[in-house]
């Protein structure tokens, strides 16, 4: 490849489009080219953000959402890794449960919401159940695949060293499945955030960032919706970053990959 484009040039190129869009946005809303109800000025959005943040305790909402997300994610991923380990290591459990699981996983995530709301209500419990389910499925699938692919030659070393079943699981199956588990956790984080938003839309009781967006729409307050959507994106982004660093940490034994 030719000499790599310098960092500065790449940065300049990267911010070109966003800046252009912001200018176009500002100009069209100020000049009345676009209906300000649909495209509020940047200033208006900023003011709304300030109002929501300071006067209406947006941070509190956000904290609620993140707590739900975290609780559901932790429950779902712990159960997921455990469940997948059982299925991967026990032939009997595998044959009994996996076909059913494979059928159930086909049901699209959000389709569970009505049933969950009947069984668990609209409160915190229902939301966390739903978020946990969202994390559970990708983590089970990836962990299971990863463990089934544990390298045979290392399993043989384990046999030569007389590993007991728990040593086999802890020393070979789980670590060799780690890249797959990391992928599962990454997907689990993304889906659990999606599910948190979904839960707050559809099980709309109590505070949360999803509630803010829905309220904005009901009041036809575009600026408010935009602030909410922006925060949704920001959290999504942070979770993604978090997943990457978690992955890098869990997989530090691997040769560095070219990304």
């Amino acid at each position: 490849m030719a000499a790599a484009t310098s960092q500065a040039v790449r940065f300049r190129r990267g911010i070109t489009l966003p800046i252009f869009l912001l200018i176009a946005w500002e100009v069209s809303s100020r000049s009345g080219l676009a209906d300000p109800r649909f495209l509020p000025s940047l200033e208006n959005v900023a003011l709304t953000a300030k109002r929501e943040l300071i006067d209406n305790n947006l941070f509190g909402d956000l904290a609620y959402s993140l707590m739900r997300n975290l609780a559901g994610f932790l429950i779902g991923s712990a159960l997921g890794v455990g469940f997948a380990t059982l299925l991967a290591l026990s032939r009997i459990a595998d044959r009994l449960v996996m076909p059913t699981f494979n059928a159930v996983k086909q049901i699209s995530l959000l389709a569970w919401i009505p049933l969950i709301s009947v069984w668990f209500g609209f409160g915190e419990q229902a939301k966390i159940v739903f978020v946990a389910l969202a994390a559970f499925i990708p983590i089970v699938l990836n962990t299971y695949d990863g463990m089934r692919a544990a390298p045979a030659d290392l399993l043989e070393v384990g046999r030569a060293l007389k590993f007991r079943p728990h040593q086999r699981a802890l020393r070979i199956y789980i670590p060799s499945a780690m890249p797959a588990i990391a992928t599962g956790v990454h997907l689990g984080l993304i889906y659990s955030w999606l599910a948190t938003v979904g839960a707050e839309y559809f099980l709309a009781v109590g505070p949360g960032i999803g509630g803010l967006v829905i309220a904005g729409r009901e009041r036809f307050d575009m600026a408010m919706v935009m602030v909410g959507v922006f925060i949704l994106g920001l959290v999504g982004f942070s979770l993604n970053r978090l997943a990457y660093s978690l992955e890098a940490y869990l997989l530090r034994w691997r040769p560095r990959q070219v990304r």
Partner: peptide, 10 residues
Amino acid sequence: FQEPRLFPWL
């Protein structure tokens, strides 16, 4: 073993 068969994560 003929190949070292080290555990890559250790």
